[in-house]
Design a binder for these strands. Structure first.
Length: 114
DNA sequence: TGCTTGACATAAT
DNA sequence: CATTATGCCAAGC
């Protein structure tokens, strides 16, 4: 319609949906999330959207990391370690403080069982 | 309405 | 590998 394709709410609502689709034991990068949301240029907005995440939300934000395979330093130190625990609890292994994207990177619409 | 900020990405140095 | 610079664009004030 005139309002064009109104996804759901805003980019954020879209990003949340994509993040919620990340399977357990897998991780995705901000750029990936943005791309899946249909806006590969908004990798930053992805992080910004997660920043607005409601506490107690069922969103697996901890599965979202940066392209370096590391969790993004939020504001205060120690927060990163927390995210790392959540990932390890899901079966994601950390090598030298970073995740092996070559193995844990989430492949949407694929990876039937490589 | 316009400037500032920002959980990023990529390339170059 | 670390740091710097640029791009890209929405949300907040």
């Amino acid at each position: 319609m005139s309002q064009t394709s109104r996804p759901q709410n805003d980019l954020r609502g879209r990003i949340y949906s994509v993040v919620a689709r990340i399977p357990r034991g897998r991780v995705a990068t901000y750029g990936q999330i943005a791309a899946l949301a249909g806006v590969p240029q908004h990798a930053r907005q992805v992080g910004y959207a997660l920043y607005d995440l409601p506490s107690g939300g069922s969103l697996p934000w901890h599965r979202v990391i940066n392209a370096k395979g590391q969790v993004s330093p939020r504001s205060e130190p120690g927060w990163v370690g927390f995210q790392r625990e959540l990932l390890e609890a899901e079966g994601v292994e950390f090598q030298r403080g970073r995740v092996d994207l070559g193995r844990y990177r989430w492949e949407p619409a694929d990876s039937p069982g490589v």
